[in-house]
Every structure is written in C-alpha cells, then in structure tokens.
Design a protein around this nucleic acid. Sequence first.
DNA 1: AAAAACTTTCAGAATATTTTGAAAATTCAA
DNA 2: TTGAATTTTCAAAATATTCTGAAAGTTTTT
Lengths: 171, 171
Amino acid sequence: MALMELKEAKDKFIHTWGTLATQWGINRTMAQIHALLLLSPRSMNADEIMADLQISRGNVNMNLRDLMDWGLIYKQLLPGERKEFFIAEKDIWKVAKQIAKERRRREIGPLIEAMEDLKEGIQPDTEEKEEFLKIVNEISKVSVFADNTMTSLLKSDENWLLNNFIKVFNK
Amino acid sequence: MALMELKEAKDKFIHTWGTLATQWGINRTMAQIHALLLLSPRSMNADEIMADLQISRGNVNMNLRDLMDWGLIYKQLLPGERKEFFIAEKDIWKVAKQIAKERRRREIGPLIEAMEDLKEGIQPDTEEKEEFLKIVNEISKVSVFADNTMTSLLKSDENWLLNNFIKVFNK
DNA sequence: AAAAACTTTCAGAATATTTTGAAAATTCAA
DNA sequence: TTGAATTTTCAAAATATTCTGAAAGTTTTT
C-alpha cells in the first residue's frame, strides 16, 4: 500500500477491524467502536462516538454495553462531567486474552454442556446407541481438551515460557 | 435430561450442532448437514439430505461444497451409482484440527495481512504516528503469536505430549 | 419538587444473510 | 449424437440481524 496520512490510516484500521470482526461472528459496529477507542488517546463519550462513526445513539449505547461485557472497554467517570466516558484496554496482550476467554466461554462451554446432556439421555443398550454415544463421547473429550488448552494458555502470564515451548514444537 | 430414544437424541444432536454453529459464525444448515453425516453410518446423497432436513436442493448443494472446502466431508463415488454420495470425516480429532486450521486461516491470516499493510503505509515521523504504529505493531505481534500457537498445536499429532504439558500448566 | 442532562429501551425500518426452486449446465448411457 | 439423470447457478423470496430515533427511564442540579 502507498504512503498514507494518519487520519487515513486510522480510518482504514477502524474499517478493517470492523470487516474482520464480522468474519469472527462479532458485530461490525461493536468492532468499529472498539477500534476507535483503541486508537483514541483519551476516553470518549457517546456523542463523540456517534459523530465519529455516524451511527445512532441506541446503536452506540448497546455496543458500548456489549464491549463492557466482553471486558474490552471501561467506563470512566470524569470529575465535573455528567456524561459517561469510555476508554479501551490498551494492553493488546490483555485484549487478546480477554477475547480468547470470552470465546472459550461462549463457544466451548455450551458444546460441553450439550454433549453431557446427550450422554445422560441415552442408555447404551443397543449397537446403534453405542455408535451414537461413541461420537458424542469423542466430541465431549475433544471439547474438554480444547477448553483445558485454552485455560492453560490464558493462565500462563509468563508468555516467554509458552513462547519457548512453542518454538521447540515448531522445529 | 430424561431418557431419550435414539431418533430423538440424533435430532437433538443435529439441532444443537446447528444452533451452536451460528454462535461461532458458521451457517446453521452447513452445521446440520455436517451433524447428519457425522451420525450417518453410511454415505448419503443430496436427495436423502434434502428429505432428512427438509431443505432445498440448492441449499444442500451449496453447503455440501462448503463442507468439502472445510475438509469436513468427502465425496464418494459409488460403483453403479450416478448420484454423488457424501461421507463425513469420523475421526473427531481430525475434525477438530480441520476446524481449527480453517479458522486460523480465515480469522488470523487476514488480520496479520491487514496490520502489515498499515505498517508499510505510515512513516513514524511524528509522535502521533508513532503512537498509532505502536498499537498496530502490538496487534501484529499478538496475531503472529496466536498463529504460531495454533500451528504448533495442529502439528503435534502426539496429543499425549501436549496433554501432559497442559496438565502441568494447570497445577 | 421540578427541570435539565443524560442513558436506556424497543418497535419498526433498514440491511444482510440464507434459502428456494426453476432454469442452465454438465455428465453419462445408449 | 440424443436425451435422461444429475449437479450447479442465481435471481427473487424468506428470514435473521442490526440500526434508528423517539419515548421512557434515570440521575443530578437547581
């Protein structure tokens, strides 16, 4: 890409972040607000975000709440200000961990639960039922494994250690 | 959940798989066809899938192709049959790896590329631009790390080794 | 207590995604 | 070849998701 001015690059960042997000099952506007706050050196209020991204108040409000649920932004009450201000977590490692954590909770958790339910509902008293349970059990095992792996990665704040482990594995 | 008959359990499995899939940004019908084939002891053709899930031919055709792109099902040409038959990969570890691989490719790849583009477009000749590049660089680092981690996990066919590593980490 | 400042809600509108099904294209047997 | 069987395409319809903006709710100031 050719040389860009800062404003242009920031817009591209916000736009790109929004587009990629839809590919990961995240709402585009939520991602754009997140990107905007990530790039903003100071906290912003709803009106500023509305003006910046040209979106409605309701939309901003809803997505700010979602972003807080995801643990990606914080509410900041400034002295002497009635309005609420929002600031993004700037430590990208924390951001990544937060996203991974949330996705683990939303994507793997329900899968494990659903498989447990199925296991409990079926008595393996025929060949067919055994076949079925075999698959359910396998999925159960794999999802518990994925869950554990995620948890481990998230717990390891010593990234260098993990990093080294990974490098060895790559050889 | 109370005791279920096999048919009921299979339907629940297919339904659940479809619902969960939408939460991970995957098309519901694609997931249902996948679930149906996972549970089917024999390969199925388009007409059978249409009848089973009550969906149109076009829909079945499109999603079968997507499932093949994901590497989750295979086309099977049976001798003496004009119709194409499809069979799912039954090894759940392979399925999980395939899904992880595909998501890595679709979700992390474009992110890395986008950040590289931004880095190239900006000259760090002002304080502001340096700030911006710092964030882009951080995201770049984190996504390359995530990419490597995924790759390592995928390469390790010796699951026991990884499993042990993970257990140690959990202590 | 009233009013002003601000946030939240939610029904309807706008947009995006998925699905249908008939027509076009392809494959294969005769 | 021809034509029957099968697969693929794609425009329009159905469905699902997201967004708007005005009204309702809340908090703070006077």
